[in-house]
Amino acid sequence: MDRQPVLEGERLVLRPLRGEDWDALYAVARDPEIWAIHPQPNRWQEPVFRQFVADALAGGGALVAIDKADGSVVGSSQYKDHDPTDGGSVEIGWTFLARSHWGGAFNRELKRLMLSHALGSVSRVDFRVGEANLRSCRAMEKIGGRLTGQTAMVDTPTGPMRHVYYEITRESFAAGPLFDP
């Protein structure tokens, strides 16, 4: 699976994250409200976000989201943990968008583009969400994510946090709210 594609929708272009995206991406990420209910609520701080970007660049699979209307960087998302066995799976996550782009249409398009691309190569996409991050849990349900029952405790800067897992399979995507034949 190509974890560094260029994907284009009606509103967004997703392309591989590059080091020179730092200033524009941090201009979005430095808003503390974006991270308020996130498992790492201090990610808006420059040193913390700098490490996040360094890890994303080193791991591959990170995409930057660009608003087609004005060419501005409005967020990012990542493909991680690609596993080709048993039909294949990949995780989509580490997604954030500028608050100006909250409200559904942009996140839905970002996820639709990433899911369409991934499900051409794997049979399942996984999502790990902080259980207390109700905004992300609701967003997962709106795009057709199914709770798997799997959980994990993750150490965060504010202490241990329980994460829940959602999945979207090739079949559930084709029958779900994001499918666009």
Score class of each variant (00 low, 15 high):
I34Q: 06
V73S: 03
L14I: 10
F106A: 11
D180M: 10
W22R: 15
D55S: 11
L14C: 13
L178I: 07
G9R: 14
N42A: 06
D55Q: 11
E20G: 10
D2W: 07
C137F: 04
G88D: 10
G159Y: 00
D155G: 12
D21N: 05
L115N: 02
I37D: 08
S100N: 08
E171K: 08
S72F: 05
A174S: 10
A65M: 12
A24E: 15
A105Y: 08
E46I: 06
A105W: 04
A98Q: 03
V90L: 12
S172D: 04
P47D: 05
G104R: 14
W102M: 07
K142N: 03
V122L: 09
S136T: 10
A62R: 02
M153I: 13
A139H: 02
E20N: 12
D31E: 12
G130A: 15
G145D: 03
A27H: 07
D126T: 04
A132F: 09
G120A: 13
R18I: 10
T158Q: 11
N42V: 01
E167D: 15
F106W: 15
E171F: 07
V125N: 01
Q4A: 15
T156A: 13
A65H: 08
I66H: 05
I143F: 01
A24Y: 05
A27Q: 14
T151G: 04
E131F: 10
T169I: 01
E141K: 14
M153N: 01
E8D: 08
G159I: 03
R135M: 01
T148H: 10
I92K: 00
K68R: 15
P5C: 11
I66K: 04
L147S: 09
E167S: 14
T85M: 10
W35Q: 01
R146H: 12
G71V: 08
A105V: 09
I37V: 08
D67Q: 02
R108C: 03
F173V: 00
L178A: 04
W44E: 00
I143S: 00
D81R: 15
W44A: 04
A69Q: 13
D155N: 12
D70Y: 06
N107A: 06
H82T: 03
T151N: 00
S136M: 14
A62K: 02
V74D: 02
L25W: 08
S72T: 14
